[in-house]
């Protein structure tokens, strides 16, 4: 299994968005590049293996719990997983916590391109942050919502005409596929 696929697998569990939704942002590979530039390969591998194993054994709420217990609460893997989550939602890389850096950080994974400091990942990443759809909002100044739509409550423009209840809403639409 290639590592990018592993990255999407762990990202699906972390973000709650399915793989196609994540690929739809068009910037997953960029996040992957940032991650692999700044975090040692062995720790990334460990995270991916652990995430795959948990997803294989557990589903739904149980997976959620095990993920919190074994990954997010883990000294080594937790900060990395949280940084992946923040990349997807906020399009930012946050400097890893000092204690983590002192214990696991390896200087200059790829000198020059990325440094382990706080930074906006790219112009396009800002536009594609998951925080916007999660809020029912849009990235200000970067994705037009249409003139005057700012006067509507989030989601309101979609409810002004009732589509009726004849449309099936499947589980997959809720992002439950992993």
């Amino acid at each position: 299994m290639d590592k990018l696929a592993d990255f999407y697998q762990v990202s699906v569990v972390l973000t709650g968005y399915n793989r196609s939704r994540l690929m739809a942002t068009g910037i997953g590979e960029e996040y992957f590049e940032v991650l692999t530039s700044l975090v040692p390969g062995k720790i990334i591998d460990e995270l991916f293996i652990c995430s795959r194993a948990l997803a294989h054994e557990y589903k739904g709420e149980a997976l959620n719990e095990k993920f919190r217990e074994q990954i997010l609460s883990n000294d080594r893997l937790g900060p990395v997983a949280r940084n992946i989550l923040k990349m997807w939602y906020l399009s930012l890389w946050y400097q890893l916590p000092q204690s983590w850096r002192e214990t696991y950080g390896v200087p200059s994974q790829t000198p020059g391109k990325y440094q382990d400091i706080d930074f906006v990942i790219s112009e396009n990443a800002y536009i594609q942050g998951l925080v916007w759809p999660a809020l029912g909002s849009h990235p200000m100044g970067a994705k037009q919502p249409g003139y005057g739509t700012w006067a509507f409550k989030p989601g309101e423009e979609l409810t002004r005409i009732n589509l009726g209840t004849d449309h099936p809403v499947s589980d997959i639409e809720e992002g439950n596929l992993s």
Binding site: K143, P145, T149, L158, I161
Partner: peptide, 10 residues
């Protein structure tokens, strides 16, 4: 309704 319709187009 064209006001929300433009939002729908985006």
């Amino acid at each position: 309704l064209l006001v929300p319709a433009v939002g729908t187009m985006f």
